[in-house]
Design a protein around this nucleic acid. Structure first.
Lengths: 113, 113
DNA sequence: CAGTTAGTTAAATAGTTGTTTAAATATTTA
DNA sequence: TAAATATTTAAACAACTATTTAACTAACTG
């Protein structure tokens, strides 16, 4: 991860709707969610969602795959890891920044119903 | 760290000049740098720097203290740790995201001289 | 094939952000 | 106290972002 990509990734996540969308995709697991499903959960219009997903995809934080007439979006965990790695190495004084207690208290991995 | 503060922090870092400024402040250590010093290193005008520092301060990522006619800005390490913690807990699937290899290859932990 | 469903693209527009120039404020030095 | 230094604030403006409505494309279904 370089500075340019980091800025793009940060910008993609720096907006309520997109951060919410990304968090939902992270929770949803590797299979992701169909665009319409996401739009419903976020309570936004299809064009609005399309606009924001394009931003996340352009930053490399989400991928999409078509299945019939549905388009499934999923979080790119590696990209997110790279971003956190960049922030840890470059913006936390070089030392480990928040390594402990990473075993998630909330959002207890309830993925795939 | 809550979602609202996370979005503000991400937005503050999601811009070249501000990310560079913050990285310089992180490197500079707890004492920080005078505004003019930062402006010189970033090669930007004083008003431009002032504008961007206000953004970082508003997000709680930097603090300022006046010393004579200089104003020193310094990185708020705790705030940054909170942000990385939020991203790790909320955007990395609940599991640890980038815990290993946090012992910095570059910028070898030279905090607290 | 006609209709419906899922999603994207286009165009218009209001709001926000970043840059610049000029003016203002505060502190030190002569 | 006048001049110089360090920095902020204000105002103007171009560039970008987010939202909305309408139109479009593609895939399934009857």
């Amino acid at each position: 991860m370089n500075r340019g990509r980091a800025v793009k990734s940060l910008a993609a996540l720096a907006q309520d709707t997109r951060l919410d969308a990304f968090r939902l995709l992270v929770q949803a697991g590797p299979d992701g969610l169909a665009a319409g499903d996401l739009a419903a959960r976020l309570d936004i219009s299809p064009p609005a969602l399309s606009f924001h997903l394009r931003g996340l995809a352009h930053a490399g934080l989400v991928r999409s795959r078509q299945d019939g007439r549905f388009i499934y979006y999923s979080a790119d965990y590696d990209a997110m890891q790279s971003l956190v790695g960049f922030l840890t190495e470059n913006c936390c004084g070089g030392a480990a920044c928040a390594p402990a207690r990473a075993t998630g208290r909330k959002s207890i991995a309830r993925r795939m119903p």
